[in-house]
Structures are given as structure tokens and as C-alpha cells.
Amino acid sequence: MAKPDTDHDIILFDGQCMLCSRIVRFVIRRDPKKRFRFAALESEAGKAVLKQVRTEAGGFAGRRSRTADEGVTDAVLEADVKAAPDTFMLVRSGRIYMKSRAGLEVVRRLRGMWPLLYVCIVVPGPLRDRIYDYIARNRYRWFGAYDHCMLLTPDNKDRFIE
């Protein structure tokens, strides 16, 4: 498994959620430049990434704003990390994006037509996140859950941080 570094964006996801695992596989297939690395939020690696970002940045980017589009304040992050399985996060250059904004930032860097979805950024963040929260609350019922984190294959093992 790979070590965290600043050359790659890191996607933090719920390792037991089947929808989240499908999204990770979806991103891997559409990321031939291997820009993204992955870690389950509940893993030690995921927790370490969050701690590292907080330490290096002296807090989280976007302290001046509580909106998802501006980043995350410490208080907001603390609340969301406690509810971590409902939160999809992207760490890029010491900044954390969450929920719908994280998803939009990810599709923006995929190959094919997927970056066109970034146009959804014009929808106000609170509205996008309400939709995100609705899906997150129902994801286990709709898509199921694993009893364990997704299994790595030799082809993608280097994409996950340890």
C-alpha cells in the first residue's frame, strides 16, 4: 500500500458502504494518471490523514467560512468526523472538501465526460449537501453494507494508503 503524500489527492470514504466502494472502483477506472489515493475513514490511515492535515495547516482550510464550498472549520470537521461514515472527503494540498463539493472536485479530474458534472457547482452548497445527506442516510438500505472493508487487488493495492 502507498504512503500518504502531497502529490496525490486523497479520498476518504466509508469502507463498509457498498455505494462508497463502488464509487472508489469507479474513480480508479477513470483515473489513469493515478491522481487519487484512497483510505477508509474508519481506518488508522484515514484518521492519520485527517490529523496530518490539521497539524500541517494549523487547522483546516476555510476557517473563515462554514460553507462546504469554502472548506471546513475545525468545529464543523469535528462534528462530521464523529458522523464520518456519512461523510465523503477529499484532501488536496492541505485542504479538505466534504460531501457534495468533494464529489464535484473528484469528477472534475476524471477522464471522459465526467468533468461536465462540475457545472453542478452553481447549485448552492447547502442544497447540494441536503441531497447528499439524504442519499448518505439511506445508502445502506439502498445499496447494502460490507461486514469488512473492500478487498484490495494487486492492480489497485498501490492506490490505497496504509
Rank of each mutant, 00 (worst) to 15 (best):
A2S: 14
A2G: 04
A2Q: 10
P4Y: 10
T6M: 12
T6V: 09
T6G: 14
T6C: 03
D7W: 04
D7E: 15
D7I: 09
H8A: 09
H8T: 09
I10S: 06
I10F: 05
F13L: 08
F13N: 01
G15A: 09
G15Y: 01
Q16V: 14
Q16S: 14
Q16K: 15
C17V: 03
C17P: 01
L19W: 03
L19E: 06
C20W: 11
S21I: 00
S21V: 10
R22Y: 04
I23V: 15
I23T: 13
V24K: 00
R25D: 15
R25F: 07
R25C: 00
F26R: 02
V27R: 07
I28G: 00
I28N: 04
R29P: 05
R29Y: 02
R29A: 15
R30D: 08
D31M: 07
D31V: 08
D31Q: 05
P32H: 12
P32M: 12
K33P: 04
K34Q: 14
R35H: 12
F36S: 04
F38N: 07
F38S: 07
A39Y: 02
L41A: 13
L41P: 00
L41M: 15
E42K: 14
E42Y: 02
E42M: 12
E42S: 12
S43C: 11
A45S: 08
G46K: 03
G46E: 07
K47I: 09
A48P: 02
A48G: 03
V49K: 08
K51C: 09
K51Q: 10
V53D: 00
V53L: 11
V53M: 12
T55L: 14
T55W: 01
T55E: 15
G58L: 10
G58H: 11
G58E: 04
G59C: 08
G59L: 13
F60I: 05
G62N: 08
R64I: 02
R64Q: 13
S65D: 12
S65V: 09
R66T: 13
A68S: 13
A68L: 02
D69E: 10
D69M: 07
E70Y: 02
G71Y: 08
V72C: 13
V72P: 00
T73Y: 06
A75R: 08
V76Y: 05
L77C: 11
E78C: 06
E78D: 15
A79P: 00
A79L: 14
D80G: 12
K82V: 14
P85H: 04
D86A: 02
T87F: 06
F88N: 01
M89K: 11
M89C: 13
V91A: 05
R92I: 02
S93I: 00
S93R: 15
S93K: 15
G94C: 09
I96G: 05
S100D: 11
G103E: 05
E105F: 03
V106F: 02
R108S: 07
L110M: 15
R111T: 06
G112A: 05
G112Y: 01
G112K: 06
W114T: 04
W114R: 07
P115R: 07
L116F: 01
L117N: 08
Y118C: 07
Y118S: 09
V119T: 13
C120W: 08
C120L: 15
C120Y: 07
C120F: 14
I121G: 01
